[in-house]
Nucleic acid binder design. Structure first.
Length: 805
DNA sequence: AGCACGCCGACT
DNA sequence: GTCGGCGTGCTC
C-alpha cells in the first residue's frame, strides 16, 4: 500500500503530495484523511493522506511512514476533494486549506489517552503487562501493539482514544477560592482578627455563613463583599483560603431554553417558498435559492421546516449564521424544534468542546450543524440542504489564508451532494442578487411580515439644517424629544453610532460637502502624518484644505465621533436614563456581550447605544425607537461597498423596532439627506436600491460587473515591497486589455495602516473580466515570487476581497 | 521549513 | 591554497 501525503509546509515547492510506503501492520489503521508523521528530507513532519494507491511513479526508494497520529479520521473523501479544488481556486497552499478544515484541537499540543471501556476483553487481548486501570497512555499501547491491532480494538469499541490538551493557553480559566478550614477554625480566626479589619472579617464571615459552598469565583467574591485583591491576598497569606484555577466551559446550549416547538402554519408566501425549495430537496437538485425577505417575514421558520424535511428523508442539514454569539435566538429556535442531534460550532467553544462536536458529526450522531463560517467544512455525510442566513454578511469571507467565502464552498458542496443551497437576507449582497437577476439563482420574495405590522416609518433629519447646541452637537432636537418621549412612556431606545476605527473624512458643517476623489467616486481619507487627503483607489491626493471647496466656509473639519462621546452626551441630557454602551471596547471580554444585552432586554437600562453589532438580529419587543446618530460615517468609508453596507446596516437596524405589538419608529440623522442610500433606506426599498447601485457599479467598473483581486506585497524593507509591487504591475499590465476595458490595475497603494509589525504593505487591486487568464498569470507570479519569500518579500492573493486597506 | 550543494571574496 | 558568505534546489 502506498499513500500520497501532503506535508505541512506552506511553500510552493512542496505544495503537492509525496508518496510513502505503508508497513503491513498499519494498513487497516491508515485511511484516507489520516494524519501521519513522515520523514521528509532529514526532518519529521506532519502530513495528510490525500490518496491511497497500489503503485507509485516515484523513481526511487519510498520511505515508510513514521507513525500514525490519529486512529480517527477528521476529513472524509469529499473534504479532501474540496481541499484540492479550493487550493487551486483560492491560489493558496493545499495544506492551509486542509488545516482550516480541521477542528483547532489538532493544532494544539495534546496527550493521546486510551480509555478502556471493556477491561475484561482488553486484558484478554493485550496481555499481562497491563494493570487494572481505566486509561493508559497511547504511547504505552503503541509500544506493544501494531496500529492495525489498536485500530481493531477501537472498532470493537473496547477502547476509545481521547485527547487532552497540554497547552491550556487556549482555554479560558477562572480563579476560584475555597477554604480548607472548618467552621470552628474559621470562628477561631475571626476572633483573632481585629474589629477594625472589616474586609478580612467579611471574608471569614462569608465562609462561616456559607458552609455549603465548596468554592466561589474570586471575582464574584470580590464584588459581592466589596473587597480588593489585596485583602484576598492577605487572607491567602494567613492560610484561611486557597485559590485554584478552573477551566471555563462555554456550552453553547447551556443557556438555551429547551422548550419544544412545533412547526408553525406558514403564510401563503412562506408556503410558496417552502413548496418550491422542498421539491429541490426531494429531487436532489443542487439549485441555489435566494430568499429576499423583509425583517420579520419568517425566513427562519422556512429554514426549520426545510431542514426537517431533509432529516425526514434521512439526510443531514447545514445551517450557517454570521456569528452564533450574536445570534443566540437562531440557535435557540433550532434546538427547540429538533432537541437532539444538533452540533453547534462557534468561536466561543473551547477547543475540546469543538472537537467533541466534530466527533459527534463524524460519528453521525449530529445530523444538524449550526455554526459560523468555518462550519461550512463540517464533515457531514449525505447533506440534504445547506442554508446560509444573512448571506450578505462579510463574516462569511475569511480575511486571512485560506481566504475562502463560505458561499463559494457551500455552492461546491451543494453540487457534490445534489442538495439545494438557500441564501437568505433582507438585503442580499449585490453579487447574489445579480446572480438571481440573470437566473443563476432562483429568487424568492417575502414581502409581508408575520406579525402583519408594517415596516416602521423612517424620519430623515438633515443635520446641516439643525442648529446645534454646544453640549449636544451629535443629537438633533427632534431625536432628543423622541428619546424623552420613550423614556416617559417606559419604552426602550436603540441608538446606532457606527464609528469604525480609523477612517476620518472631511465634512463641511455648512453645506454637508464631503471631499471626493475626482476619479474614483470615493471619499478621500485624511492622513494625519502628511496632512493630506488621499484616495485609496488611485494615486490622487491633495493637501488638507482650510475652507470648504464648495461653499468656502471655514467650518470644515475631519469627522468621526465615537460611541463614548455620545454616551456622555446622553447622560448629560437624560440624567435619569440608564445607557448601555456596546462597542468593541465594552465587549472585548468574553461574555460581556451577552451581559450587556441581558441588561437591556431585562429593562435595567433604557437606551442601548452601540456600533453595528447592535444591528444584528436581536428581538426586543419594548423597543419603539431606533435612532441612527450619523448615517454618513459608514457611507463615506473608502470602499466601493460603502453604500451597500450602509443600506444593509440602516435596514437591519430599522428592523430592531416594531418587533412586538408596539409600533416602532426610526430616526436617521445625516448630513447627506438626498443621498440615494438614505432615500432608499427611508422607504425600505431594497429592489430600487439594487437597481440604482448596479448602475453605479457598472459605471465605475466594480463587482458584480468585474472580478476583483487584491495583491498584497509585504516586507520589512519598504523599498523591496514597493519595488516588487511595481514589478508585478508591470508584469500584469496589458494595454490591449485595458483599452478593451477588460482589465484595470489600481495601485500600488500603500496600505492605510502602512506598517504592521514592522512589515510594510503595498496593495495592487485588479479589476477584470476574464478570470482564467488572470488566474494563470497569478499562478506564474506566485511561482516567480516564491524565491523572493526567502528574501523576506511576500505576495498574498485575495480574490473578491471584502475590505481593501 | 530545513538542509546540502556550489560558486565567489578575505584570511591563516 | 581554504573558510564561509548565502543564492539555488530538493525533499517521496
Amino acid at each position: 500500500m502506498i499513500v500520497k501525503v501532503v506535508i505541512d509546509i506552506p511553500a510552493k515547492q512542496v505544495n503537492r503530495s509525496f508518496d510513502y510506503a505503508v508497513p503491513k501492520d498499519w494498513e487497516s489503521a491508515i485511511k484516507l484523511g489520516s494524519r501521519v508523521q513522515v520523514p521528509f528530507g532529514n526532518m519529521k513532519r506532519t502530513g495528510f493522506v490525500v490518496d491511497i494507491a497500489d503503485e507509485t511513479e516515484f523513481n526511487g526508494k519510498l520511505k515508510p511512514i513514521h507513525s500514525i497520529m490519529d486512529y480517527d479520521v477528521f476529513l472524509n473523501e469529499e473534504l479532501i476533494e474540496l481541499s484540492d479544488y479550493l487550493a487551486e481556486y483560492l491560489q493558496c497552499f493545499r495544506i492551509s486549506v486542509l488545516q482550516a478544515m480541521l477542528p483547532s484541537l489538532l493544532k494544539a499540543k495534546y496527550d493521546a489517552i486510551v480509555q478502556i471501556h471493556d477491561p475484561v476483553l482488553f486484558s484478554e487481548k493485550v496481555g499481562s503487562w497491563y494493570q487494572n486501570e481505566t486509561s493508559i497512555d497511547r504511547k504505552e499501547l503503541e509500544d506493544r501493539m501494531s496500529p492495525n491491532a489498536i485500530s481493531q480494538l477501537k472498532k470493537e469499541n473496547i477502547i476509545s482514544i481521547e485527547y487532552q490538551v497540554i497547552n491550556q493557553t487556549t482555554q479560558k480559566t477562572k480563579t476560584m477560592i475555597k477554604t480548607n478550614l472548618n467552621k470552628d477554625q474559621l470562628m477561631n480566626a475571626l476572633e483573632k482578627t481585629s474589629q477594625r479589619s472589616f474586609k478580612q472579617r467579611a471574608i471569614l464571615e462569608y465562609f462561616i455563613n456559607n458552609q455549603a459552598i465548596e468554592s466561589i469565583e474570586k471575582n464574584t467574591l470580590m464584588t459581592e463583599l466589596e473587597v480588593s485583591n489585596a485583602t484576598i491576598n492577605s487572607a491567602i497569606d494567613k492560610e484561611w483560603i486557597t485559590t485554584f484555577k478552573e477551566v471555563v466551559y462555554r456550552d453553547p446550549l447551556k443557556d438555551v431554553s429547551f422548550q419544544t416547538s412545533s412547526s408553525k402554519t406558514l403564510l401563503p408566501e412562506q408556503q410558496n417558498a417552502y413548496d418550491l425549495i422542498s421539491q429541490s430537496v426531494d429531487n436532489k437538485q443542487a439549485d441555489t435559492y435566494l430568499i429576499e425577505g423583509v425583517t420579520g417575514s419568517g425566513k427562519t421558520e422556512i429554514y426549520l421546516q426545510l431542514m426537517d424535511r431533509a432529516l425526514q428523508q434521512g439526510k443531514s442539514a447545514l445551517l450557517l449564521v454570521p456569528e452564533i454569539s450574536l445570534t443566540p435566538q437562531m440557535v435557540e429556535r433550532v434546538v427547540s424544534r429538533f432537541q437532539t442531534g444538533i452540533a453547534v460550532l462557534h468561536s466561543g467553544l473551547s477547543i475540546t468542546e469543538k472537537y467533541d462536536e466534530w466527533q459527534r458529526i463524524i460519528k453521525g450522531e449530529a445530523k444538524i450543524v449550526v455554526g459560523a463560517r468555518s462550519s461550512i467544512f463540517a464533515p457531514l455525510e449525505n447533506i440534504g440542504i445547506i442554508i446560509i442566513d444573512e448571506e450578505h454578511e462579510t463574516t462569511y469571507k475569511q480575511s486571512d489564508n485560506p481566504r475562502y467565502h463560505a458561499r463559494d464552498v457551500a455552492r461546491w458542496r451543494s453540487d457534490y451532494h445534489d442538495a439545494p443551497l438557500i441564501l437568505g437576507s433582507a438585503t442580499p449582497s449585490l453579487e447574489s442578487r445579480a446572480r438571481a437577476q440573470v437566473g443563476n439563482y432562483h429568487l424568492i420574495h417575502l414581502e409581508n411580515r408575520v406579525n402583519q405590522m408594517p415596516m416602521p416609518p423612517v424620519d430623515i433629519i438633515d443635520m446641516t439644517q439643525v442648529e446645534l447646541r454646544e453640549t449636544a452637537n451629535e443629537l438633533s432636537p427632534e431625536l432628543i424629544e423622541k428619546i424623552q418621549d420613550r423614556l416617559d412612556k417606559r419604552e426602550q431606545v436603540v441608538l446606532l453610532q457606527n464609528r469604525r476605527g480609523y477612517a476620518s473624512y472631511l465634512l463641511c458643517r455648512e453645506c454637508g460637502f464631503i471631499m471626493q476623489c475626482p476619479r474614483c467616486d470615493i471619499s478621500l481619507t485624511y492622513h494625519k502624518f502628511d496632512n493630506q487627503m488621499k484616495c485609496h483607489y488611485c494615486d490622487y491626493h491633495e493637501p488638507l484644505p482650510t475652507q470648504c471647496p464648495s461653499c468656502q466656509s471655514p467650518h470644515i473639519r475631519t469627522h468621526g465621533i465615537g460611541t463614548q462621546k455620545v454616551a456622555e452626551t446622553l447622560e448629560e441630557i437624560f440624567p435619569e436614563a440608564k445607557v448601555t454602551r456596546m462597542d468593541n471596547d465594552t465587549t472585548r471580554r468574553k461574555g460581556q456581550h451577552q451581559k450587556l444585552l441581558d441588561e437591556f432586554s431585562s429593562g435595567q437600562s433604557n437606551i442601548l447605544l452601540g456600533t453595528q453589532m447592535i444591528a444584528k438580529s436581536l428581538d426586543f419587543e419594548n423597543v419603539t425607537l431606533v435612532g441612527v446618530i450619523n448615517a454618513d460615517t459608514a457611507l463615506n468609508l473608502p470602499d466601493f461597498r460603502a453604500s451597500e453596507r450602509t443600506f444593509q446596516l440602516l435596514t437591519q437596524v430599522s428592523g430592531r423596532t416594531g418587533r412586538g405589538r408596539l409600533a416602532g419608529e426610526v430616526v436617521i440623522q445625516t448630513y447627506n439627506p438626498e443621498h440615494y442610500v438614505i432615500q432608499f433606506a427611508k422607504t425600505h426599498d431594497y429592489e430600487n436600491f439594487f437597481r440604482f447601485e448596479m448602475k453605479r457599479r457598472h459605471l465605475t467598473n466594480y463587482p458584480p460587473y468585474y472580478f476583483t483581486t487584491l495583491l498584497t506585497v509585504s516586507s520589512k524593507h519598504q523599498g523591496k515591497a514597493s519595488q516588487l509591487a511595481y514589478d508585478l504591475k508591470a508584469q500584469l499590465y496589458n494595454p490591449e486589455l485595458e483599452r478593451k476595458e477588460q482589465l484595470y490595475i489600481i495601485g500600488p497603494n500603500r496600505n492605510n495602516i502602512s506598517k504592521i509589525n514592522n512589515y510594510y504593505y503595498f496593495n495592487l487591486l485588479l479589476k477584470y473580466k476574464d478570470k482564467t487568464t488572470i488566474q494563470r498569470q497569478l499562478d506564474d507570479i506566485l511561482n516567480n515570487t516564491q524565491q523572493k519569500a526567502t528574501q523576506g518579500v511576500y505576495v498574498n492573493i485575495d480574490h473578491e476581497p471584502q475590505y481593501f486597506s
